[in-house]
Nucleic acid binder design. Structure first.
Length: 379
DNA sequence: CGGCTTTGACCTGCGC
DNA sequence: GCGCAGGTCAAAGCCG
């Protein structure tokens, strides 16, 4: 990776984390800290991750006028049956989220955590970032310009199980095609390759959560099978790859620890669950649900999908804006949630980018505008 | 024995 | 074309 890109990416990080940082202070989320101390939690930070997140996301709605609608982490995981090509979903592309891309430079992240620590008097902090990635629909619909590509293509993610499962199949097909060598076949192969390239552009939506935890693999109500582990460049901590064990469920998640703040675990979800949480099926829903969720319609009812509907996210997010190089104003939806659980306080930061231009996807393309904005706000 | 983790090999995409 | 890094596979081993 070139230095220019690294620099640009760092600038992106700075702006990204600047958003996190500002939101930590701009909003009245710290009020939650003293307001909800009676919310029960389980002892293990890992096993209570699901609970924590539900609490993080649901408790904040009580004081957030923007959020008339309950949204929990379970909602995040399940969402609802939604057509990502319709309605407002198409209105906003989302920040590209490949954890190494976003978090490999964690200067700002560490700052957020430390600031929060100072702010709340040394309480343990779970800091998580919900960072929705490109929508599948957007990928399909949005044209890819030579100078940029869709949001999702900014990452190196494979497109879910279907894609990965097709890898070998594709190789076999290519080999078969090689076997029959005609001029027509060659052109057909080219077309096939192009089509497959387009197919591979399709990425599952991704959400990255940053959580301060001692345990890498956080319990979220689903069952996961680890299928790989890789050393991460510039990091002493490996990245683990998990796949949902439910048959025909293509959801994956990556778990890695920040090398700059080892206390921070970065979990990236990819794909949509097409089933109910095993925890729910086992009758453990109540244990996993945050109290506020018990009073709201069950998020497990109906078909489930991941990620959450973007409208739901947007409902909960105050907006800010930034301008890109073309002086186009983009709405930014972001929020932080503080969730006190006895002596544990957590912060949820949700970033959302709305109404990006169709060709405004690549991280490299986003960086200048972020930088632009950064310079405007902080001369 | 089934389910899960570990781990080396392999594949793919991308930049040079 | 080559090298690198990310992502995935699958055999082997572990564990309850």
């Amino acid at each position: 990776m070139s230095d220019d890109k690294s620099t640009a990416r760092d600038l992106y990080y700075q702006e990204y984390h600047h958003q996190l940082y500002n939101n930590s202070y701009d909003r009245s989320t710290f009020n939650h800290q003293s307001g909800n101390n009676n919310i029960p939690r389980s002892s293990s930070s890992a096993s209570s991750f699901h609970n924590d997140l539900n609490g993080l996301l649901s408790s904040s709605s009580s004081s957030d006028p923007l959020t008339q609608q309950q949204l929990s982490f379970t909602d995040y995981l399940h969402g609802t049956s939604v057509d990502y090509n319709t309605g407002g979903d198409r209105d906003f592309n989302l920040l590209p989220c490949s954890s190494p891309e976003i978090f490999s430079s964690l200067d700002g992240v560490g700052g957020v955590l430390d600031k929060n620590k100072n702010h709340i008097g040394g309480s343990k902090i779970s800091n998580l970032v919900v960072d929705p990635a490109g929508c599948t629909g957007d990928i399909v619909n949005n044209p890819v310009t030579p100078n940029s590509s869709s949001v999702s293509s900014s990452s190196t993610e494979a497109a879910g199980d279907d894609d990965s499962c097709n890898k070998r199949k594709t190789n076999d097909e290519n080999q078969l095609s090689k076997g029959s060598e005609d001029g027509n076949d060659l052109s057909k192969n080219k077309l096939n390759k192009q089509n497959k390239k387009v197919d591979k552009k399709q990425r599952e939506p991704r959400f990255a959560f940053m959580t301060k935890s001692e345990v890498d693999h956080l319990e979220d109500g689903y069952r996961w099978r680890k299928y790989g582990q890789k050393a991460v460049k510039n990091s002493i901590y490996p990245r683990s790859y998990y796949r949902c064990t439910t048959q025909k469920c293509t959801v994956k998640k990556r778990v890695e620890r920040s090398y700059q703040d080892p206390a921070v675990v970065i979990t990236t979800y990819e794909g949509q669950h097409n089933h109910q949480s095993p925890a729910t099926l086992r009758g453990n829903a109540a244990r996993l649900l945050a109290p506020s969720m018990l009073t709201s319609p069950s998020p497990f009812v109906g078909s489930s999908s991941f990620p959450p509907r973007h409208q739901d996210l947007m409902l909960r997010m105050p907006s800010s804006s930034f301008t890109n190089d073309n002086n186009q104003v983009h709405d930014y939806k972001s929020s932080n949630y503080m969730y006190p659980q006895n002596n544990l306080t957590a912060t949820t930061t949700v970033l959302h980018q709305q109404q990006l231009p169709a060709d405004y996807g690549l991280l490299q393309d986003m960086v200048p505008s972020f930088n632009h904005d950064e310079q405007k706000q902080h001369p």
